[in-house]
Design a binder for these strands. Sequence first.
DNA 1: TTGACATACTATGACAGTCATAGTAATATA
DNA 2: TATATTACTATGACTGTCATAGTATGTCAA
Lengths: 113, 113
Amino acid sequence: MEGRISADLLRGHTDTIVLGILIKNDAYGYQIYKSIMDRTEGLYQLKEATLYSSYKRLEKEGCIIAYWGDESQGGRRKYYRITDKGRVQYQQNIADWEFTQRILKRLLKEEED
Amino acid sequence: MEGRISADLLRGHTDTIVLGILIKNDAYGYQIYKSIMDRTEGLYQLKEATLYSSYKRLEKEGCIIAYWGDESQGGRRKYYRITDKGRVQYQQNIADWEFTQRILKRLLKEEED
DNA sequence: TTGACATACTATGACAGTCATAGTAATATA
DNA sequence: TATATTACTATGACTGTCATAGTATGTCAA
């Protein structure tokens, strides 16, 4: 299957992607997973397990808060809401990402030195 | 110290950077290290140990070959030369990187869905 | 010539994010 | 009643990065 990106290129971006989704609306775990699959047409092979460890990490850091949905009978859904700290973190991650891109461009593009 | 990029954003790019340097000229280990430091003004905190494991990995994969320099008396330098396989790998890595950037842009930039 | 420092390479083990795997449990559909 | 889908969780392996520590040579100044 083509279109698979090596896990190492994704590494470090997972939290940012999750925050980027939650910054628009609260969402529950599986919904976030589906949303990423949809928006990347399955090309971005982020695994469920990876996302769930991201949620845990972000929660521990205080970037998101979890709460159970009010589906009173079964089909429980755990929703996540971004916090102020999460919003700050998101902006920082985006800045880091853009910075990294600039550095990589400098290193990888063929400019003679 | 600002300007430090998280290791996870670099992850997976090290081999490509090394190949990108060797594609221009053969070089020895420490020289590659210095070259990266210089070209990024120290903002890209790639550690020596990280590079040496990259060399080992690339060599094992047949992307580069090592040979000792002819400094006959002491000050030994291990040079690396890129192979045809390495050149192919380099182009592939660049393509993957660009692909990843497009996907991330789609996920991170604020376009309403 | 002694010491400090830069050059140049190597080895080991810890750490953390990703993922394979496997599971529980409810709902919907046939 | 069986199957698929939704939704969440836990465990352990893998791997790239890096902290740490070491060996050895060359250079330069006191």
